[in-house]
Nucleic acid binder design. Structure first.
Length: 926
DNA sequence: CTAGAGTCGTAC
DNA sequence: GACGTACGACTCTAGG
């Protein structure tokens, strides 16, 4: 029973509420709360909320609440002192008991009670009867007496489990053993020995749970123990058992649940039909339960996820680092490679480099951790450690490369953390890797993109409670830090071998978790892992950037910036740095007395929207805006891009990061080539510097409206779907619907509004946000949104469903089953709202990302035997290629259908791809 | 001097 | 508080 397991509800499930247990827990969990008349109702409120939530999530076939009936039970007859010394019920709880029963009934849940029989016994009867009838049973309680019923189930029967709804913990046999030291079947015997002071069950004095478990282990059961007690060595214990044997037997009778009463109502009668709104309102409205009324009866798909939602930890790990060796001689290396090839079944790699840039790094060494029963221990192959005593006679690099090729060229499946980086570096050193089957970073990302880190050290800590060595310990820190090229071989060996071995272990640990979900397994094996190789080729190719173009633009812009800065200073009357929001605030809102509109954490906002409003009031504001625009372009692009050009290749090699964006998108870093300007004319000119090589052309292919198409597909909205099927302008069609005019009469302004609303929907924008975006009054924006949702009803319904399902499941998912946990949905206020926006956006943005990734793999495969074209970049919905000038159309004809077909048959709307070509990125227009 | 927070702005 | 996903430049401040 893993910590994440939850009940499987739906048909065939029987949920039995231990009413009294539940009331007490609700009472203590909820803050005090009173109904309008002053009656305390916090327990009622908590109780009802829990029932609502469970009904929504689990949709039990049978859902009943069982209560004690306050009469003498057989236990009192047996033992008058039974439950005699119970502390009195809290004063505030007393009046709530009858209310809870009534509330339960008002919710439409059968209230079961039998005079003279405790709730526990009734629950036992129902649980066993339901199991006999082939149902799975969940008892909603934390009462230890009920744990004796727990049964993991088997081939011939369904399980009986307990569910602690407040801790979200499923209690099965392993949890019972963990808590009590004995399985559920022996729990009665154990409790008979230990007794129970709260129920006044006597037990045997001096015997607590630990001793009882140990004795039962030794003697089998209570009777065996009592009859064999004479043989116990410890005097006190032996005498206690002999003296109190009768008490123990009596206790056993008190503790053991009886299931010999007839069921007051047969199971078939108790099928849950949900609640009746009128009944609920009649009952709850007078109690002031407004929020609960809205929560009623929506049917939410709560199919439990396949596989874990978070990485499931494993047993603590210890690694024997004394086995690690450095292979410093050629003979040693060869022998090691032979042994791995003979005995290993897979091989984990960890390269060591001097700098963190895969296209510049020099290979310093490689650690190898083979998997397999009799495989050799991990070892480190030093390649380029400067001046280490261990390496007086280093093995020639070409010999190392040859041995590595033998080892990693395809003879064994490979494992590597951050495999793309390693593959690029190794390839640059003459070692082309064979098939990679596991990259733990990508496995972690696929399983749980929302986790805080996919770093190997973090994974080792979280999964195996293992603390990995840190780079700092090898390289030193601060000014004295060295690169690995200057690090000692022995320390590097420990560090790198540990990482290789951790990659191996982590991969082996995560693999079965991926396999638990068909969707996640496919995403990993067929999407993320192959994509890493595609991205490897893209990064290795790089893109040509004409530094001279950037330099020329930079000079022009620099002069303009200097002029603007002087003008701004003139207006101000003093020299200031317009880059500083601080100084800008002083100028605008103090010296010039302009009106500050928005506040930031540290002062008044001076962002573009604020400045645009102020532009009419003072000429300096326009200058600042212009200055801002130009310095941004110059500082971020013109000045920095040339520095990123690789001196060896003469091209720009970005790093596509595959395990960062929580939606499944890629990101681009060092430099970021996914935010090169295009929207403004000045900005767009930067794209003139991205050029094709001589005799070549750039080709761009971009998905038209892919996110809106996915929204159309997911929501199934009639209007949206038909817009795309008919191939019309979707914003125009939306405008026509929303403004109630024929399509040909839609004005540019109307289309702009419709477009903004369409995008706002994808991002979960509010009326406030839309108003700000469009610069219109909030009321007007609200009415646009209102009409939009009326005219596009499928979208409304879909968005509500998305939030409900995501809230019930705790995650959002894409068309291809990529999941993203959204813990924010369990919180309140702003956090919850944020969670709702994520829930709306992730399926759309993530599905688009999945489709693009599929397209990239397909196109890459098609280009494998077409060396006249290379993929250069991806910008979320766009692919950029470089190809021989005469073959641009051929490339477009090849790639376009692959991109348009990348969703397979998953979409009910077509995908459309637009193409452009030209000598530069800027020239790639339609 | 460095690291991190804050603000702003670019892309899709 | 109010629009989702990224990356990064620049300023300013806290800390060594």
């Amino acid at each position: 029973m893993s910590t994440n397991a939850r009940p499987t509800g739906g048909p065939g499930s029987v949920f039995l509420i231990d009413g009294n247990n539940f009331i007490f827990r609700a009472f203590h969990a909820m803050p005090s709360l009173s109904a309008p008349g002053g009656v305390p109702i916090n327990a009622v409120h908590g109780f009802v909320r829990m029932i609502q939530a469970m009904r929504k999530e689990f949709q039990p076939e049978v859902f009943i609440a069982v209560f004690d009936h306050s009469e003498e039970t057989f236990r009192n007859k047996l033992y008058p002192a039974y439950k005699a010394h119970r502390p009195p019920m809290p004063e505030d709880l007393v009046p709530q008991i009858p209310l809870v029963r009534a509330a339960t009934a008002a919710l439409g849940l059968p209230v079961i009670e039998v005079p003279g029989v405790e709730a526990d016994d009734i629950i036992a009867c129902y649980a066993l009867a339901a199991q006999k009838a082939g149902r799975s049973v969940y008892i909603l309680s934390t009462d230890k007496d009920l744990m004796q019923l727990i049964d993991a189930g088997g081939p011939d029967r369904k399980p009986i489990l307990m569910w602690d709804s407040m801790k979200s913990k499923l209690i099965g046999p392993p949890e019972v053993v963990e808590k009590w030291g004995v399985p559920p079947t022996k729990l009665v015997d154990l409790l008979a020995l230990t007794g129970d002071s709260s129920d006044n069950v006597p037990g045997v004095p001096g015997i607590g749970p630990k001793t009882a478990a140990q004795l039962l282990e030794e003697f089998g059961d209570l009777e065996g123990l009592l009859s064999g007690a004479a043989g116990i060595k410890q005097v006190k214990r032996r005498e206690a058992l002999q003296e109190h044997a009768a008490n123990a037997r009596l206790s056993r009778q008190l503790v053991e649940l009886r299931c010999d009463i007839p069921l007051p109502r047969p199971l078939e009668e108790l099928v849950d039909n949900g609640s009746d709104q009128a009944t609920m309102e009649a009952f709850f409205a007078p109690l002031g339960f407004k929020s609960l009324l809205g929560l009623r009866g929506k049917v939410v798909d709560t199919k439990p996820p396949e596989g874990p939602l978070e990485l499931r930890p494993g047993a603590p790990l210890t690694l024997d680092k004394s086995r690690y060796t450095a292979l410093t001689g050629e003979a040693e290396l060869t022998a090691y490679v032979d042994a791995v090839l003979a005995k290993g079944d897979r091989l984990a790699l960890q390269i060591v480099v001097d700098v963190a840039d895969s296209m510049r790094a020099a290979l310093v060494g490689v650690a190898l951790a083979p998997g397999g029963e009799s495989a050799p221990a991990p070892a480190y192959v030093p390649v380029a450690h400067e001046g280490d005593a261990l390496l007086v006679k280093p093995v020639p690099k070409d010999i190392i490369a040859a041995q590595l090729r033998r080892l990693t060229g395809g003879a064994l499946p490979l494992v590597a953390q951050g495999s793309k980086f390693q593959a690029i570096v190794l390839r640059r050193h003459g070692v082309e890797l064979g098939p990679l089957t596991m990259d733990p970073k990508l496995a972690s990302y696929t399983l749980d993109p929302a986790r805080s880190s996919h770093n190997l050290a973090e994974l080792a800590k979280d999964l195996f409670a293992y603390t990995a060595g840190v780079q700092e310990d090898v390289l030193g820190k601060g000014k004295k830090a060295v690169t690995f090229a200057r690090a000692a071989v022995d320390r590097t060996t420990l560090y790198a071998c540990e990482r290789a071995e951790l990659a191996l272990k982590t991969g082996q640990h995560l693999r079965p978790q991926l396999d638990e979900s068909t969707a996640l397994r496919a995403l990993f094996d067929e999407l993320e892992m192959p994509l890493a190789r595609v991205l490897q080729r893209i990064e290795e190719t790089g893109v040509r950037v004409d530094a001279a173009v950037l330099a020329r633009q930079g000079e022009v812009m620099g002069a303009e910036i200097a002029g603007l800065r002087a003008h701004i200073a003139e207006h101000a009357g003093y020299d200031l740095n317009p880059d500083s929001p601080n100084q800008l605030q002083k100028l605008l809102f103090e010296d010039l007395g302009l009106e500050a509109s928005r506040k930031t954490k540290t002062g008044f906002s001076t962002d573009a929207t604020v400045l645009e409003e102020l532009a009419a009031y003072h000429p300096v504001v326009g200058l600042i805006l212009e200055y801002r625009g130009l310095t941004k372009l110059k500082g971020t692009y013109l000045d920095t891009l040339p520095n990123e050009i690789n001196p060896t290749t003469g091209r720009l090699h970005t790093n596509f990061r595959q395990a960062v964006a929580q939606t499944g998108r890629l990101s681009s870093k060092d430099p970021n080539l996914q935010n090169i300007p295009i929207r403004s004319e000045v900005g767009r000119q930067i794209r003139e510097a991205f050029v094709a090589g001589p005799g070549k052309l750039l080709v761009t292919l971009d998905y038209s409206q892919i996110e809106l198409r996915i929204l159309a597909h997911l929501s199934g909205d009639k209007n949206l779907v038909s817009s795309f099927r008919d191939g019309v302008d979707v914003h125009r069609r939306t405008a026509a619907e929303v403004f109630g005019v024929p399509e040909q009469d839609v004005t540019a302004e109307q289309r702009r509004v419709a477009k903004a609303v369409n995008f706002g929907v994808i991002y979960g924008q509010s009326a406030f946000g839309l108003a700000r975006q469009l610069g219109i009054p909030r009321g007007k924006a609200g009415s646009y949104i209102k009409v939009y949702f009326e005219k596009i009803p499928g979208v409304t319904r879909y968005m509500e469903e998305l939030i409900d399902t995501a809230s019930a499941r705790g995650y959002a998912e894409t068309i291809f089953g990529r999941r993203r946990r959204i813990p924010e949905l369990a919180r309140k206020g702003a956090q919850r709202s944020y969670g709702e926006r994520i829930a709306r956006n992730t399926p759309i943005q993530g599905s688009a990302a999945d489709i693009m990734k599929r397209a990239m793999i397909a196109v890459d495969a098609a280009l494998a035997d077409r060396p006249w074209a290379q993929m250069l970049l991806t910008v979320h919905d766009e692919l950029i290629f470089e190809c021989e000038a005469g073959r641009a159309e051929e490339l477009i004809a090849l790639a376009r259908p692959l991109m348009e077909g990348a969703a397979g048959d998953k979409l009910q709307v077509p995908l459309q791809v637009e193409a452009g070509k030209g000598p530069s990125w800027a020239a790639c227009k339609g």
